[in-house]
């Protein structure tokens, strides 16, 4: 929403009169339409939030991602085992293949395919924690990584 208003303001500086009025109306209409047309990532996160039944937290997501867990496979006690502690940098699988940064600012198409997101949470949570992650855990982690 903020984004749309910023654009409107900069356009307003170069225009005036009836055109400006029309533009502002259009901007308002776009603002209203935004929540409906939220991107696929926002929809995925909203889905986890709805299932979790409580507000998601980026701080909790970061702690979960950085944390050392028990119950998983011995070689991978943490998300950082492969993704490293710097989510802006490339990670590496145990077989040596590079993993694109998890930070959305570095890899903009991250978390835009719900099937892919679910597949990797299922596998990696079982690998790291020995169980599937809860909607709250998934939502928290995605909230944090989206802000990075």
């Amino acid at each position: 929403m903020k984004h749309v208003h910023d654009t409107g303001a900069s356009v307003a500086r170069s225009l005036s009169g009836p055109i400006l009025g029309t533009l502002m109306l259009t901007a308002a209409a776009v603002s209203l339409a935004l929540p409906v047309s939220a991107g696929p990532r926002e929809q995925i996160i909203a889905g986890y939030a709805a299932k979790a039944g409580k507000p998601l937290s980026a701080a909790r997501g970061k702690a979960f991602f950085m944390g050392t867990h028990k119950g998983g496979k011995p070689d991978t006690p943490s998300c950082t085992s492969c993704h490293t502690r710097n989510v802006h940098q490339w990670g590496r699988t145990r077989a040596g293949k590079p993993i694109a940064p998890m930070a959305v600012s570095k890899t903009p198409d991250r978390f835009t395919d719900p099937k892919k997101v679910e597949k990797w949470f299922r596998r990696n949570c079982r690998t790291v924690l020995g169980r599937e992650c809860t909607p709250l855990e998934k939502g928290d982690v995605l909230t944090w990584l989206s802000s990075q």
């Binding site: 496979k73 991978t76 299922r122 596998r123």
Partner: peptide, 10 residues
């Protein structure tokens, strides 16, 4: 595949 060389690859 759920225990694929130490990882879940199901």
């Amino acid at each position: 595949l759920s225990n694929h060389f130490g990882e879940d690859a199901s």
